[in-house]
Design a protein around this nucleic acid. Sequence first.
DNA 1: TGCCCTTAAATTTTT
DNA 2: TTTAAGGGCA
Length: 839
Amino acid sequence: MDQDPILANLNEAQHEAVVAPLSGQYQILAGPGTGKTKTLTSRVAYLMNTVPAKDILVMTFTNAAAREMRSRIKQLIPNNNEVSKLNVGTFHGECFKYLVRYGSRIGLSGKITIADPTDQAAIMKEIVNSAETTVKLEEFGYSSKLGKCYSNPTTKMNINLDPKHCIKKISEFKSHGYTEVQDFAKVCPNEFNSPIGMYIYRKYQDELEENGLVDFDDIIIKTRDLLKQCPDIVSNIQAVLVDEFQDSSTVQLELTVLFAKATGNITIVGDPDQSIYAFRNAQPENMRLLQKMFPNSKVIYLEENYRSTQPILDIAVGLIRRDRNRIGGDRLLKSQDSQNTTKKSLPVLAQFKSEKDEAAYVATQIKYLRDCSGTLFKYQDMAILARTGYASKKCELELAFNGIPYRVLGGFKFWDRAEVKLVVDYFRVVNSDNDRVAISSTINAPKRGFGPVTLTKLLTRVDDKTSIFTQLKQYAYDEEFREEHGLKIRKDALEGLDNYIKLIEGCRDILKEADALGPATCIRNILDHILEKTNLVKILAANDANNEEKRLENIELIRSQIDLVYQNDEMNDDGGAAEEDLNPLQTLLLSLSLGGDGEDSAYSNDRVTISTMHSAKGLEWPIVFSINTIDDHVARGGDKGEEEERRLLFVSLTRAKLLLYVSFATTLVKFGNEEEASMTRLLTGLEHHFKTCDKGKGTTNISWDMFVSYANFLRRPVPDRKQIQFASSATTVPSKSASFSGFTLASSVIERPQNKKRKPHIPSAPISRSLSIPTNNRTSLLNTSKQTRATGFRTPLMPSKPTPTLNSPNTLPHSHPIPPKRKTLGTRRGPINQKLPFT
DNA sequence: TGCCCTTAAATTTTT
DNA sequence: TTTAAGGGCA
Ligand SMILES: Nc1ncnc2c1ncn2[C@@H]1O[C@H](COP(=O)(O)OP(=O)(O)OP(=O)(O)O)[C@@H](O)[C@H]1O
């Protein structure tokens, strides 16, 4: 056994990859749970022995994966504070740092803002609806129209001018690294490879540039251009390491090579079976292409699975075998587990008659597994995975209702809520004179008396020299200018314009004090200024009074989120782009566009994870619940895209180490109508690998011997037998009915008011799907505290048979985590970006 | 300009 | 079921 902790616990192949010489190219190809990320992070730690941290670049494709990687490296070498100097992040994050610092070399002006999908849609909508486009359509012979599709009868070319569709096509084009319009022949020969398509593309790019915006694809493309032109800026990079390489796009492959230009030292790991980002133009073939580009690159295969029990892997293998586009031959997954008990313990397949029952079951099971396992299972050992963000909402409500603490990965972001986004748009206007998109979404919110005619006039550039904000000032304060450009404006609207400009300039004055105030205080002051001058607090308070949704609370949460951003910023001085090159406002905006939602470490880490399947990639838990496993969620849209959906399910199931629960409901409510549903076809024929939870079989009872095996498998201490509550008396008595009515205990035990209009009174922060900060502190603060664990507590959601609790005296200072106003569970919440009261 | 009415559409996943 | 969007009218 190796003395070096970095090299301990590696098998032969892993060891070989970790200690491989710095120079050269290495590909680690292996299935889930074989230690790819472990190998990559160990290699980083190992290389740090000889290479300065700042000269190592480690990239992956999602924020969650980047966070995981950083934390694993830290764990490997906890006392090495060089770690914070490593360049670890997402492709987009690392690229943007270079653009901020060196963008001027390729003509990017100082202030770059990232165009989010809303901005992209706004810009594209304006383009397709413009008079100019109508003229062009005519000019290029697109004389017939069907919905948003235009066709040219002569050339037989069609083009779909739906903004979303246009953006998708352009994004695909850019993902190949193309910038010249004739390259549309290669990606979209029958639609955008036409004068009208090229015109739309050019117009879109011009519009971005004029607004000082780059979209996500531009971040990659422009960095590629920058590195091609000025390879000197990455001359220090001695090693480039990329995780989940199957998720890379064509231009990202090109970029990987460019980053390594100085030495050519590249290590990548990947698994084509886990390719789940083709929808955003990932090319799993890149693994092979890289090998072609570097014929001498060494490929290392890892065979052993260290994560999961064999029954879990059997299902995964059975599933992935059916991938019709599979790259490479069939691969086995071999568990390293040698215990007879866990080897034979099958995952659970559970069927319910409603999604509500399903959610209640998951919550009950989570509580049971934690409360009855002594100290073996904690909340943080469990995850609920769903295809979409909103699909897990019912479970989220059920957890909150039961006082189970949780965190949410993926799905809607806090910053995407309408009221929060508005504030952010104000920040953007303060930051830049040219951000017309942000000006347009703030200038009349709240209402300042402009109608569509005035707005168009105000926001249309009179010439390309004057910035849009300067132009607004001229309209406001220069009567001659108004006359010259034919702006007729009412007196109240003119006042509104004056107020708007004063508000923005007031914020800019505060920003000038940034050095004296410190970043967080400065931004909070700007926030206060915006809130005061827009009267937003009063407006929202009035609105909240008639509404379940408490928007004002979200505004308050912005403050604590701001603090989080600057705290995290201080912790990483990787490449140090942030402090030196950006003012505090820009740091904030950058972190909002490229970072995930902040996690507040002040709160307990012992929380259940609720995640989208995508965000779960690269992570693992002892216990995983795959919910809503029906075609409608998990394999929607027939054959097209089925392979990727299958791989996605493969990824989800292989997140589980020990216990896997796959569940679904036989009905689903769609637009108010109840529809029938059944288990996804992706799993058809694999049922025998599960114990099914109906017809009295498949109980979830756990015996003492099993607990011992679980502990051994997880390499955890065997819990005190006295603390274990045996399932036989404690829980989940399987019902005789096939539809599991035995588990509708939530509805039989908890009194659910009939009034359907009332929504559950749940802390709004957790529901915001992003914030870990509870606003309704009664629930979450309480349950995340250590005390709760020590004393335990009982919630009304318990099995129909009374549960003898050994360690919960049931006499708590706060014995009832449920807010007194109890309301119907399972009601759908409105979308998060709901219209604001004044728009 | 802004309000009220009718009708259509809507639910991925991430940077 | 709920929300966005488009048309008519004061
Ligand atoms: N040689 C080993 N000995 C013991 N445990 C190991 C070994 N290699 C990896 N593991 C453990 O196996 C689990 C899976 O490792 P890791 O997350 O690195 O796999 P992966 O190949 O990246 O998986 P995925 O592709 O699913 O993200 C981790 O808990 C890791 O600590």
